[in-house]
Design a protein around this nucleic acid. Structure first.
Length: 446
RNA sequence: UCCUCAUUAGCUCAAUUGGCAGAGCGAGCGGCUGUUAACCGCUAGGUUCUUGGUUCGAGUCCGAGAUGAGGAGCCA
């Protein structure tokens, strides 16, 4: 028995092979029966002809319920009519072994579903082509993230998930009891630990889940999401932007190379992704505010006009990012945000303390922020002052402040949200589809 | 926390001025040798989110509540 996976179907034209998987869809046409078989690596059409099979086998195939698990044998042939992923090849059935005949009341039809129903049935929803495609692309993105960093001199150092206090004062933390030590909090970033790690390893990254107990109910927010955070010693803001553009370009190009059928099945505009290469435009926060004001002036819809209201010193809202990025066909850097809207640890712009050496990377086509980064503050005295200004407990940051007293150097880093990146690359409108089991403010099931 | 919207068959939705609870898909059965969201025929499938009220009569109108969604704020 020559067992193959659907992904490799084209390599076996003319051979008798066996597929092991699930009945994704069944249709019949008299003496013909079509099964779309899913095996995790792809979707392949299997065609049964009554004249080629004994009566019992054909009857079984004609009536087999959706989602039944099967081992199916037959000869691979090329046929342009054959649907599937990658498609174009099909299996002419010679034998079928039913592992389990599925119950008849499978809840997810191969149709459109509302968000609530789909999420309640996420354990089934991931079986559908669209979700399978998105999650396969997610896996490629994560692989590309690790590969690029590993190949460019970064060392992976996992940072703790249980932490003693807020790293970025303002956001809300998930709290848990920690034995006799009082409270512990789920990490919202590994950055402070990364900053310790660079003094031992030079270029480092952490990659793991992070947690935000913010009551955000939007298509761009999850309470549990994955973030990769590189941190680099002897690196200023300009060098940081160079690293980010190489990093993001590599990720996009690898998805284009490995997941073209998935992108096509999602209806993604691939030419838009092909442009994501080389250097990205860099605009200052000051310039970005001017651009948004111009766009606002041209806007006629009064509601939209109100959303786009902006003055220097305000952070960008989702609408601001959307209209700004629609002006570009590549990701765009916006640097030099007002100090007051950013975290306490960012280095001030030289001679301009009201702005800081921060940079966000905004994905094009209206997707907005996927990376937030900055050059970190290297002066221990100013850092202590900022911690006080932000009302943070000094004793929790003792070790962090010590880093600046023993070999402090200019250094920079960034955090990239995996789900937002997946949403952009896949062209998905909601972030909840970009992680296998999303956690939102209203959902911890399934 | 605030604003807006939604809730009717397993799913997606319709139901005219307040007047018999409907369709498509899905499921089952039957038909068809190339289906692509197949097509054709038949069958089963309902606490119209809950609760109180108005009315001869409420899916529809009014009050209260529940659940969910989108957005704001905050952020990746």
């Amino acid at each position: 028995m020559n067992i193959i996976r659907v992904h490799d179907i084209a390599k076996h034209e003319g051979e008798e092979v066996t597929l092991r998987g699930w009945v994704h869809k069944r249709t019949g046409k008299g003496k013909l029966a079509f099964l779309l078989i899913r095996d995790g690596s792809g979707f392949a059409q299997c065609v049964a002809f009554k004249g080629d099979l004994d009566e019992e086998t054909f009857e079984t195939i004609s009536h087999i319920p959706q989602e039944s698990s099967v081992i199916i044998t037959g000869t691979i042939r090329k046929d342009d009519r054959a649907p599937g992923l990658p498609g174009g090849f099909e299996l002419g059935v010679s034998a079928l072994d039913v592992v389990q005949s599925a119950a008849l009341d499978y809840p997810m039809a191969l149709k459109e579903h509302g968000a609530d129903f789909a999420l309640d049935n996420r354990h089934f929803w991931i079986r559908m082509q669209s979700q399978w495609a998105i999650l396969r692309i997610r896996a490629t993105i994560i692989s590309a993230v690790r590969e690029w960093l590993d190949d460019n001199g970064f060392t992976l150092l996992d940072t703790p998930i249980l932490t003693p206090a807020a790293a970025e004062g303002t956001t809300t933390l998930f709290e848990t009891e920690y034995f006799d030590e009082g409270k512990a909090y789920l990490a919202q970033t590994g950055q402070l630990y990364n900053e310790a790690n660079i003094f031992a390893f030079g270029k480092v990254y952490c990659f793991g889940p992070t947690f935000r107990a913010e009551k955000s109910k939007t298509r761009r927010h999850l309470t549990e999401f994955w973030m990769v955070e590189p941190e680099i010693a002897f690196c200023d803001l300009d060098e940081l932007m160079e690293i980010e553009e190489q990093f993001v370009s590599y990720i996009v190009q690898r998805v284009l190379k490995e997941n073209r059928p998935e992108l096509e099945s999602l209806g993604r505009d691939i030419t838009a992704l092909e442009k994501v290469e080389g250097s990205f435009p860099r605009i200052s926060y000051d310039k970005a505010v001017e651009m948004i004001k111009e766009i606002q002036a041209e806007t006629e819809d009064p509601e939209e006009k109100e959303f786009l209201e902006i003055e220097w010193g305000m952070d960008f809202g989702a609408r601001h990012e959307t209209v700004l990025t629609q002006k570009f066909d590549k990701p765009v850097f916006v640097y030099g945000y007002p100090t007051q809207v950013k975290a306490f640890y960012m280095e001030p712009m030289p001679g301009r303390p009201e702005a800081c050496k921060s940079v966000d990377l905004l994905a094009p086509e209206g997707y907005g922020e996927i990376i937030g980064g900055s050059e970190r503050m290297s002066d221990p005295d100013l850092l202590l002052q900022r911690i006080h200004e932000h009302g943070l407990p000094e004793e929790s940051f003792k070790w962090y402040l010590q880093l600046r007293q023993f070999g402090s150097v200019p250094h920079s880093g960034f955090g990239m949200g995996i789900e937002r990146t997946v949403a952009w690359i896949c062209g998905t409108d909601h972030i909840r589809e970009t992680i296998p089991f999303p956690r939102t403010i209203k959902r911890v099931y399934p």
